[in-house]
Write a protein that binds this DNA or RNA. Structure first.
Lengths: 142, 142
DNA sequence: GTACCAATTTGTAATGATTACAATGTTGTA
DNA sequence: TACAACATTGTAATCATTACAAATTGGTAC
């Protein structure tokens, strides 16, 4: 039913990270909402169910998940966004509506001799522009 | 002697952007210092020659240059960094010393059908990890 | 040279995401 | 039950960036 969610829970157990209620809820939100949410989006949504939730906890949890390699960070806008999908893919950021679209890439193609003897921990590809939907709306004179 | 600098000045003239003393100095700093400087680095350096310089002016000028397409933004750290080199290349950010290294890439290899009918204005590739120098120092037990 | 307008610069204040920190609460264990 | 380690919470601080209004500059027409 929620295979990824359960896999992640096991992964956390393997890394000796305690699975508190709040942490599980953040993880659950990320697996259910693949919109690359901000801290505020996660906090606002979860706060309805968990009135005592603190935004600091959301920050702490995300930091933990990122350090554990279970979540990736998306930078470039005013608010940091978070992605539960750690498989190789690029992000297209729409400069008009702010939506982030995933697209497939083969990072191996970027292998580079300039970086011999460098330890590469992370690779990110960002495209920016106007998404299909916003282009269509603009055409309508909006 | 300063071919790139002169080219950029002409480019600005072509775009009807006035070349004030402050703007030229920022441009000059960027062409002379290819370390992908922060606003603060630019401000601090120029402030010695131009004691009246305001940090706001540095921000304004960089915004202008970025919008004109003459400078590219590098995100991902606490402070935004700026790059006068607008040719295709990737950035390796050292998580230890903070240095940014350029490396060559062929962005055409990332062409992607997932983004058909999207208007792509900008492509960025960031690698993160530990640079050669920091790896060497770590080996020495530093 | 002077008057005028627009563009530019400047400094200060506001914004807002993120972090630091200390107090409180929770959990598991002997 | 007692204790220690870990989590959570809320508030306050940080700090890069932006907003804004006043002062300055530069060019143009007279």
């Amino acid at each position: 039913m929620k295979p990824l969610y359960d896999e992640l829970k096991q992964e956390l157990k393997r890394k000796n990270i305690n699975m508190s209620f709040q942490r599980l809820k953040v993880l659950e939100y990320l697996t259910d909402n693949r919109c690359h949410p901000t801290v505020d989006m996660i906090y606002t949504a979860l706060h309805e169910d968990i009135p005592t939730l603190s935004k600091t906890t959301v920050y702490n949890t995300l930091k933990l998940l990122v350090e554990a390699g279970l979540v990736k960070v998306i930078v470039g806008e005013s608010e940091t966004r978070y992605d539960i999908d750690t498989q190789d893919h690029g992000h297209f950021i729409c400069e008009s509506c702010g939506a982030i679209y995933d697209f497939s890439i083969d990072l191996d193609l970027l292998a580079n001799s300039d970086l011999n003897h460098f330890q590469i921990n992370d690779k990110s590809v960002y495209f920016k522009g106007i998404c299909k939907g916003c282009l269509k709306n603009k055409g309508k004179g909006k």
